[in-house]
Computed example of a mutant assay.
Amino acid sequence: MRKSSANLIRTSLLLLALGILLTSKTLLSLSIIPLIFLAIPFGVRLRVLSAECDEQTFVGDTFAVTISVEARGFGVVRVRHTLPEHFELFEGSNVLEDFVVGRKVMRISYRATATRRGVYRLDKLEYEVESPLLTFVKRGEVEIDVGVEVKHRVPKIKKIGTIRGKAKSPIPDIDIARIGVPGTDFREIREYMPGDALKFVNWKASARRGKLMVNQYEVEGKKAVWIFVDANPYMLHGTTVRNYLEAAIEVANAMAYYYASRSHKVGLYVVGERRTIYPDVGGRQFRRISRALLEIEGGVEAIDEAIEACKKFILLYKPLVILITRVERSRPEKLLRLYRIVPVQVITLKGLETGFSGTVLSAVRRSYVYRLRACGSCVELDVNRPVSSLFIV
């Protein structure tokens, strides 16, 4: 009930009381008039006729939304399409107000800008219906089936620069794959691992040993690449739009595209969420990785625990391991031992620290960078600069 409705009721009761006290038929008759206004019927039923939205866009780009709603009834209708906090209106309006008598088709049309990556459901259409005299109001929601994926735009990279270090082949362009297309040359019989094709199972050896054994052949192709993205809470330092985690996701997306487009097997591990995408080739694999990067929310997991969890597969694939993190906070000690087994490239992010604490963290970061560079490859990336600055383009 609105304030105006309460005032009408008070007015009616006052006239009624005065009519009774003064025995005035006129006042008694007048007390009915406010109630007549309250009794005027109203109500509007809403039905979504269509809802269209660009399904994909990039951070900083605009996308279009068009919603058609049918309203039947009598009253004032306000409709609002709810947008997430990281979206900004660019053109048009996501709010519509109109007076409905009978049937009317209303249309919301606007363009918005997404300032943060992610998968968003835009399925809430809020409405508010008021009586013609603004005496009563009714609120509710209608669900619609629209959503949008907001991705980082992949920079056009021609070449990734090599960094001096002691690890063998920090860039895998010229290396032969440990896991790839099997050739015809027999190599060994080993225990079955997830991902092995059943056609390579050696049933005789499996019967002798009591467990599945497979034939392994020499493979052809390029070296695998395994990207570790640190999604621990300290990666959220910065704003909700620009922080270390968003920068790490942007770098991982660019590197996954670079290697996948060059026929490398690319895998992904999200540190904190314990999410693993095993190395594979092709555009479908890149889209799978890109989707996983979009859905990152974060979690808690030590870098050393992540490396230990993937150690068996790292020994199998012998990939180039790329870790995107803040070394002053993650302190990946096991990487120093991992350098002896496989080539490792660490990308440590910087640029958002301020004040005295920022100075201390920068000093800690530099000390870790020196230690990592003594073993292999370590690159510092200022998140205030374009991701392409990490590469030779």
Rank of each mutant, 00 (worst) to 15 (best):
R2M: 11
K3D: 10
L13I: 08
I20C: 07
L21W: 11
S24H: 01
K25W: 14
S31V: 07
P34F: 08
F37Q: 15
L38F: 05
L46H: 01
A51W: 09
G60M: 12
T62N: 11
E70L: 12
G73H: 04
V76K: 15
V77Q: 03
R80W: 11
L89H: 11
V100N: 10
V100P: 08
A112E: 00
T115D: 08
R116A: 08
L122H: 14
D123L: 02
L125V: 10
Y127D: 11
S131D: 04
S131V: 07
L133Q: 09
T135K: 08
T135M: 12
H152Q: 01
P155V: 04
K156T: 12
T162W: 05
G165R: 01
I171V: 11
D175K: 13
D175H: 14
G183K: 03
D185R: 12
F186Y: 11
D196K: 11
V201H: 05
Q216G: 11
V219N: 07
K223P: 13
D230P: 01
A231S: 15
T239M: 10
T239Q: 12
V241A: 02
Y244A: 02
Y244E: 00
Y244C: 04
A248E: 00
I249M: 15
N253D: 08
A254P: 14
Y258W: 05
S263W: 07
S263Q: 09
R275T: 14
R275V: 11
I277D: 15
G282N: 06
G282R: 06
I296W: 01
D304N: 01
E305S: 15
E305G: 09
I307N: 00
K312S: 12
F313K: 11
F313H: 14
K318Q: 06
V321S: 00
V327Y: 03
R331P: 09
P332G: 06
E333L: 04
L338E: 00
R340L: 07
I341Q: 14
V342P: 13
V342M: 08
P343D: 00
K350G: 12
V364Y: 06
V379A: 12
V379M: 05
L381T: 13
L390W: 03
